[in-house]
């Protein structure tokens, strides 16, 4: 199981951030995700692993500056 923005989602072996977004069917153009606190940018979504029991936050806008 992984937690995504507080919601539970079933985990599977080899899951990536891109896979997780596909499961959610969330089309929002997230620029950043935090996987157990680690920052992952969009470029890494299809490579960045999501471990079992991970806590993931999808950062919908990084505005800053």
């Amino acid at each position: 199981m992984v937690k995504v923005d507080g919601r539970e989602l079933a985990w599977r072996e080899g899951m990536t951030v891109a896979d997780l977004l596909g499961e959610l069917r969330d089309p929002y153009p997230y620029a950043l995700a935090r996987v157990d606190g680690r920052a992952v940018t969009r470029h890494e979504f299809d490579k960045a692993p999501v471990p079992d029991n991970a806590e993931v936050f999808l950062v919908h806008l990084v505005v800053g500056g």
């Binding site: 923005d5 620029a31 950043l32 935090r34 920052a39 940018t41 936050f57 950062v59 990084v62 800053g64």
Partner: peptide
């Protein structure tokens, strides 16, 4: 859940 400003300030922006 977002930029961790309270622990890293604006240093979070470098790799982004």
């Amino acid at each position: 859940k977002q930029n961790h400003m309270s622990s890293v300030g604006t240093a979070h922006l470098v790799t982004i």
